[in-house]
């Protein structure tokens, strides 16, 4: 089991470590460029390739999509409840604290733990979470919603382009598969390096509240994940992917939103750091439970 855990975790940790060391030593990690090329080229390619090369039936993909919607909105509701009763600002925490790192941690975790079908399901979960994050995140933070602008983002366009292949069973041309595969495989390692580089740069505002919020967020995700798997009677691969995806630390994109809309980005950096470090303990435990239980 220990060897198994090392096999699953070390690629992700070492990749983030490369970014961390790079930024600590050279301080020239171009995070903005990596995010930009990720959002416009490599991540759309990853999503498109994942969806059209999948060996899974549409029902499975739809189920994961629906459960992902349920998980993300439940997490938002949980955060809203806590901010309501504790008097914290919902505008500050709702768009940031509710979202997990379903992409750059979730996809490789599912891939190394459960194989490429699991990675495809993780891509679906990530897509749902990212779209909700991109719609509601800046929307709640700024008070303005731009659903039409969302349609033009390359990530959404990638899914729109993949739909005909999925639903009409069109044969996917190999040149397109090869191209999107080549570009898509750069997405995850580059974003993991960005995660490491960002952690190296974070200025942390150390207040006790931050630790509590971090622990609350992590346990909320775990409860929501297990809760929906139980409530919907999910099992097998879907259950594993949903639980992993729901229990991840806070997304790095939340930091970008907090910074852009001046919502206490130092505290958010601390929350991301604490949840990410804590996930070094929770993820191996969850993986072990999943190995035994499902």
């Amino acid at each position: 089991m220990l060897v198994e855990l090392i096999t699953i975790m070390s690629p992700i940790l070492l990749c983030a470590l490369v970014g961390f060391i790079w930024e600590k030593k050279l301080q020239d990690y171009p995070a903005e460029f990596v995010t930009r090329i990720g959002m416009t080229i490599t991540i759309p390619c990853l999503i498109f390739h994942g969806l059209i090369s999948a060996d899974l039936d549409i029902t499975t993909l739809k189920t994961v999509g629906l459960v992902a919607i349920a998980c993300v909105f439940t997490c938002m509701a949980g955060v809203a409840l806590v901010t309501h009763f504790s008097g914290l600002s919902p505008r500050r925490y709702l768009p940031t604290l509710s979202f997990g790192n379903a992409g750059f941690l979730g996809i490789p975790l599912c891939y190394f733990a459960f194989g490429s079908d699991a990675a495809t399901l993780a891509i679906v979960f990530f897509f749902v979470s990212a779209v909700i994050h991109m719609t509601f995140g800046p929307g709640i933070a700024s008070g303005h919603f731009h659903p039409r602008r969302l349609l033009k983002t390359p990530i959404v366009m990638a899914v729109v382009c993949a739909l005909p292949f999925l639903f009409l069973n069109l044969p996917s041309p190999r040149w397109l598969l090869n191209t999107t595969n080549l570009l898509g495989q750069a997405a995850i390692p580059m974003m993991l390096m960005s995660l490491g580089a960002a952690l190296a740069d974070f200025q942390i505002d150390s207040r006790k509240r931050l630790i509590w919020l971090a622990l609350f967020r992590l346990s909320l995700g775990i409860i929501v994940g297990f809760g929906f798997v139980w409530a919907f009677g999910l099992d097998g691969l879907i259950a594993k992917v949903v639980i992993i995806e729901a229990s991840l630390p806070v997304a790095i994109m939340s930091y970008a939103i907090a910074e852009q809309y001046d919502l206490g980005h130092k505290e958010m950096a601390g929350i991301i750091l604490v949840t990410t470090l804590a996930s070094l303990i929770t993820i191996p435990i969850i993986l072990t439970v999943l190995q035994m239980q499902f």
Binding site: L14, A186, M190
Partner: peptide
């Protein structure tokens, strides 16, 4: 090579060709 090493180098190595072509 041990699987953790093979997985890690495959993951990071995936960056090489696409970024070199770009």
């Amino acid at each position: 090579p041990p699987r953790w090493l093979a997985n890690t180098t495959t993951l990071i190595g995936g960056i090489a060709i696409p970024t070199m072509l770009l």
